Simulated assay, not measured.
Amino acid sequence: MVKKVALMTTGGTIASKETAQGLLESGAMTGTELASLCKLPDEIEIKVVDVLQVPSMHIHFQSMLLLRQAILDELKDPLICGIVVTHGTDTLEETSYFLDLTIHDHRPIVVTGSQRSPQQIGTDVFSNLRNSIFTAVDERLHDVGVVVVFNERIYSAKYVKKVHASNLQGFESFGYGYLGIIDNENVSIYQKPVTRECYSLSKGIPKVEIIKCYTGADGTFIDAAVACGAKGIIIEGVGRGQVSPFMMDSIKKALEKGVVMIVTTSAEEGKVYPAYSYVGSAFDLLKQGVILGEDYDSKKARIKLAVLLASQDHINQELFT
């Protein structure tokens, strides 16, 4: 029985070519070129859909919406077993989580990329792409949501993040591990998420900013974000969710203006929690009306808040618990 996969391309290193100057031109290869070099078994049929051909740092919410709609269009075909998205690695974790939150379909959606270009020695392009396709046709990934396949490992979109600038083992899910592996074209699944979230987008996606906390940080960037029209702000705090006390006046003013604020932690593992009583602590922030971001990192919290603001009128603590 032939299994049909839609290969959606967006550019990135995985589709790059070397220039005369020895640099990489991101997104120079088409999906058809990539697919033709993968040597897939005859029982897998690939339908290529070239959506974008850009470096992943050129991706923004409108790009994500374009990709989402292209995926939804392909999922209208009942013969499609799964979707594979090729993407640059720098923002892959953000796009994959956006798709996870906004597409409700039981079939697997797999996002992948590469750390090396197709022409480089030891490239991971074809192993990552082949493994993603094998994952996309595996029925055990039904109802799991969007996953990321990288270096023979399968990760949940919610917790995956880029952890190395260039190494082939470029992605990890600290504290949660991976869902499974692909070994010699055989997919093995070890765990699955127990819950899924999906939201309908009824409004435009607003501006949501991330502001990092550090010693002596004040409210300069918070004030600037509010002045530029931000509807939401993610404060990346430290430890259990502490921020500099010099940020508090600006945080209060932003909340009074209706800006939704969420505090996350810069720590790789652990949750934001109201453990201390001092000014700028998670307890103090919660008392002022800031939402505690639990175990979300700042990028994922930004994606989720933007989606929530585009889908409903009231954002509360329960949505991040």
Rank of each mutant, 00 (worst) to 15 (best):
D249K: 15
Y296T: 00
A230E: 05
I235N: 08
G229F: 09
E236R: 15
L292I: 00
K253W: 02
D295I: 00
M247I: 08
I235K: 11
I303M: 11
A217V: 15
S277P: 10
K271R: 15
D297T: 02
S244Q: 07
Y296F: 15
V290Q: 01
I210T: 12
K271L: 02
H314I: 15
L255W: 02
A267F: 06
S298M: 09
I222L: 12
F221K: 13
Y276L: 12
G270A: 00
G293Q: 05
R240I: 05
S244K: 08
A230V: 03
A217L: 04
G232R: 05
I235F: 08
Y214V: 05
D313I: 01
V259S: 07
K271V: 10
G289C: 03
I262Y: 09
T264Q: 11
I233W: 07
D223L: 07
K271G: 01
A227F: 10
Y214R: 11
K304R: 14
T264R: 14
K299I: 03
V279I: 14
P274R: 13
K299E: 02
E318P: 10
D295H: 01
L292N: 00
I315T: 13
K300D: 00
L285E: 07
T265D: 01
Q288L: 08
K300W: 00
S244Y: 09
A306W: 00
T215D: 05
E269D: 01
I315Q: 07
C213L: 01
V226R: 15
R302F: 06
S298A: 15
V238W: 03
F221D: 13
I233K: 12
G216R: 13
T215V: 15
V259C: 14
I211T: 03
E269F: 04
S311N: 08
K304I: 05
V272R: 00
K300S: 01
M248R: 13
L286F: 09
S250L: 09
K287A: 06
T220Y: 13
N316L: 05
F246W: 09
G239I: 06
P245D: 03
K300V: 01
G237R: 01
V279S: 13
K304P: 11
K300M: 02
G258S: 01
A306S: 12
L285R: 07
L305I: 12
M248F: 05
V279F: 07
S298Q: 11
I251E: 04
